Computed example of a mutant assay.
Amino acid sequence: MKLALFDDNRLGVVTAEDRIVDVTDALPGPHDPDPVTAGWWRGLCRDFATLSGALRAAAETGRPRPLTDVALRAPVLGTSKVVAAAMNYGEHVSEMHEVQERTLGRVEAWMMDFDVFLKAPSSIVGPGATITLPPDAVAAGHEVHHESELVVVIGSGGKDIPVEKAMDAVLGFTAGLDITVRSAADRSRRKSYDGFSPLGPWLVTADEIGDGSDLDIRLTCGGTVRQEVNTRDMITPVPAIVAYASSMMTLLPGDVLFTGAPPGVGPIAPGERLEMTISRIGSMSVTIA
């Protein structure tokens, strides 16, 4: 099922005909559009298995609308944290040696190993967003890079989740850009500016995607391919990322987990339009200002 948030954070199901059906009224409680108090979304993430039947029925009987008639929002709401994996594609590890030599004048060896870190939830924006380069980074002459990634949205979540049970804790997947300032600052700081976590265009539930291990990721700018990879090339696959992250922190319903940057990261500049596609999920674009 493709779940989308649109307009005033209404819940929609996207159909195969590029249509969307508003299924908000099939939710068991009142709809609250405020991201600060919208506990219904986290409840949906946690209880999707029991709510999916009613949502499917509402999608089948509701009135489809063209996607062009609605404004898609980020397919998460009120998330407690954004967890991100670092150094999860071998070719990206290799290219980061050159990137760090150019932007830092040295290679930080500790940053070449797989790990996870946190980004600010306030960095999340939806498809079609305009991302403004941070004035302080621009003034300092720092490069700001794109990183296109498969993103996991946590369902039931948990703590110390075994690898073999990890996908039971996942609601689904979406596409995301981990926008990054290249500087000597802390990783979380460089990746947490407002707008630095575009997500979209919607969420596809795990029953349609599996464990995310065979998806094509592609990022273009002005028709030029900048990143292209299959998720089978991940060093640490999705179930292992979920298990590892949960060994340090409780993963709560609605949490977001970036799975790592593929090779091909590079600078972005005002006026550019980035278009990202993940097979079996969909496409989104953002504009740089």
Results as ranks from 00 to 15, higher is better:
254 G>C: 05
226 R>A: 08
232 R>K: 15
150 L>E: 06
175 A>T: 13
257 L>V: 05
4 A>E: 05
211 D>S: 15
208 E>I: 07
24 T>G: 13
212 G>E: 01
151 V>I: 14
29 G>L: 12
205 T>D: 08
246 S>K: 00
1 M>D: 05
195 G>V: 08
30 P>E: 09
37 T>A: 06
88 N>A: 06
210 G>E: 11
136 D>I: 14
221 C>L: 09
242 V>N: 01
125 V>S: 06
254 G>W: 02
113 D>L: 09
195 G>P: 06
204 V>M: 04
167 M>L: 14
197 S>G: 13
152 V>P: 08
77 L>V: 01
156 S>C: 11
54 A>F: 02
69 D>G: 11
268 I>N: 05
158 G>T: 09
43 G>I: 03
146 H>R: 04
111 M>A: 12
198 P>E: 05
55 L>A: 00
86 A>K: 12
200 G>D: 02
39 G>L: 01
91 E>S: 11
221 C>M: 10
100 Q>W: 10
6 F>T: 05
77 L>K: 00
289 A>P: 10
55 L>G: 10
53 G>N: 03
105 G>S: 09
105 G>I: 12
154 I>Q: 01
220 T>I: 15
275 E>W: 14
28 P>G: 10
252 L>E: 04
26 A>Q: 09
188 S>P: 09
89 Y>K: 01
31 H>A: 03
42 R>N: 07
